[in-house]
Design a binder for these strands. Structure first.
Lengths: 219, 219, 219, 219
DNA sequence: CATGAATGAGAATTCATTCAT
DNA sequence: AATGAATGAATTCTCATTCAT
């Protein structure tokens, strides 16, 4: 888990800070980071269990075993905590997918989709909240945007760009995102199939489409 | 808009009811139905604007220009008003899709998808709420269930069932639902493309899938 | 049941009232009285079941099978309906006790107490409400006042007034009322013993008091 | 007033708590206890003035000069506050009566009744509410039960049990409770006579009963 | 830094009462 | 006279947020 971006938060120091003080601050900073991590872990648990709206700050602070006021020392409000949580997971998703994809010779949908599902399955709890409550929380970067963004990057690197001619890339990415999102939502209630098989299902659909007989009616 | 199912509410009449009584009852019932319709219209507007959770009963009654108490004369709580709204639209969707599909020689995905998008586009506001808040409201029949249900019916009537062999119909229906849902969600922020073109986009994806070059990396 | 005191309520007549009109009014008056009686009967039932505060006007009008508005045609508010009910029962109590007592040669506590319990047992439902809710309703003549009043009359007619010398008649009447009231309250939960035996119990206590051994400690 | 049972609320302390911590905790706990006491005092005043049903939470918090929400920090609802109040007084009554009675050679009605009235007079306000509203509040241990319970204990310790033969002890205790309760209710409106004289009146009635001339009519 | 008692705005809900028909 | 739809004041209760310690 990485909180580095937040750690300098309070690092503006008192003018009379001495070496000793610096050490103290380090201790404080460490404690602070620990508390913050506790809060985020608790928030995740609580959000997953109760959903965004029914989760109260008290729920979270109790789960984190800290005082109510402490929450506000780390987050401006519930929104911020939620967004932090979501952002975190998505940054990891992005990084991980990028890394995994890079380790292959080319960026293909196959690799990307597998990678997404693998990560989403491991983090089912958060993805549930994100997909269920995302639209409710104003400032949230919608999960779908992240996925769609990843897909667009894949589409743009297609070897024969003419293959995608005629498609509205943006819309296309969205529609494909829909398939993937539903795959993840499927895990709300059931754990089967696992990520690899799920990816295969989705890829099969995306690769060949549905049987022609569903679209026309020849007699 | 049809509230017919509710209009008989007060129409059970005493056998010995006189013309005068009948008129009286009618006036009351008519007023009642009008108020109910106003409330539903207001609820629709408010839900669309603020989302399920941030809409308060007061918001709704003010938009409907009735007293707070009046709301509770017609609905037990916010949930019930919301569900009424959703149910209504979905019953109409179902009926309309079924009717439209029937008027064709065979039930094809083509017809179904076009029909769904046509209806959803006309009712974009409600579909937004339904797709965004659905998961938040316990009793709601999730929109996705309705769509998936319709798709399953289509799948089951495919002329050559062997074409779908190997597919998990339930999951498949879900995944396809995802594409359609994202198509509708697309209309959250923009009005283009219209329903027919949207349907065509979706159908193209579903019929042929994505270009093979996206999946493999031949050199 | 006597509503005579209320029946002239609306009897101020239009100047142009004709004989025919009078007849019509009679019909109206009869109908009016019937509705009023229905409402009182319903109120009694509802008050007995739910208590004063939890009984709503709607409860009463529904039980009486009339419209809500009708209630206000007969009573100014809930209080008035309640008080009417109580007053009625107490007037009957008074009349009945007076009649019964008169039929005996002399007014004795024995006769009075038996008479009170007989009546109270028959009307347990109303007495319950009166004793339980009486203090809650501002304008109500408290039940205890009625009983105490009756007792005072008995005390004042005692053949040898010197027997009561030293007693504060008012307070004494109250204290005795307490015994009787508790006898009635006893019937909240149980129906045994019946009125005659209850009266005997109370009279035994009032006649001889409790055994002396309870008061002193001789060894 | 003793809130001791609640005072240890926050006093469970970390073993490694330092002096500083102890003080901090004490301050919080002290403030909390003070607020709670304020609320109870205010509730007492408000209940006494308006009765149970007409007292609103707002009335109480305004009288206590705290925010509305604060009430709910200390009591689940109006019922709980009311019951707390009643329980408190009755536990004190019980303890006090028991103590006083013990200090005498034997448990006699004389001592018990005097003790009850002495306490009830000092707490007239609360006893009023308790006797007037008791039946309205579901969970309340009815005041009468407490008094009756005390009396039963006295009756059971009578030196010559055969003296009470033929009496239904339960009912008898209730009836006697009625006398005592009416004595207390007498103080609703007037302050005279004081507790000792009141007790004497009641004891006189209970010891010797009423003059025989009230019961029979010999000429 | 951490705490948790206190706060009060805001939400839901009820119900006595009015009034057009 | 009767009706019942509509009203809105009043009440309970919750919870994000503040702040003294």
């Amino acid at each position: 888990m990485t909180f580095h971006s937040k750690l300098n938060y309070n690092s503006v120091m008192n003018e009379d800070s001495k070496t000793e003080l610096t050490i103290r601050q380090h201790r404080g900073a460490r404690r602070r980071a620990k508390t913050r991590a506790d809060l985020l872990a608790a928030a995740r648990k609580v959000f997953a269990k109760k959903g965004y709206h029914d989760a109260s700050i008290l729920d979270i602070t109790e789960a984190a075993d800290v005082g109510v006021g402490t929450f506000y020392l780390h987050f401006a409000d519930k929104d911020e905590a939620f967004n932090t949580l979501i952002d975190e997971v998505f940054h990891i998703l992005e990084e991980q997918v990028i890394t995994e994809v890079r380790s292959h010779e080319a960026i293909t949908l196959t690799v990307t989709v597998h990678s997404i599902f693998r990560h989403a399955y491991a983090q089912r709890d958060l993805f549930s909240i994100a997909l269920a409550s995302g639209a409710q929380v104003s400032r949230t970067i919608r999960v779908e945007d992240t996925i769609a963004g990843g897909l667009i990057r894949v589409f743009e690197q297609v070897p024969q760009p003419e293959d995608l001619q005629g498609y509205d890339i943006q819309l296309l990415a969205r529609l494909v995102t829909g398939v993937i999102a539903q795959g993840i939502i499927w895990w709300f209630d059931q754990d089967e199939p696992g990520p690899e098989e799920m990816a295969n299902n989705v890829l099969a659909l995306l690769a060949h489409g549905l049987p022609a007989s569903l679209f026309t009616h020849n007699n």
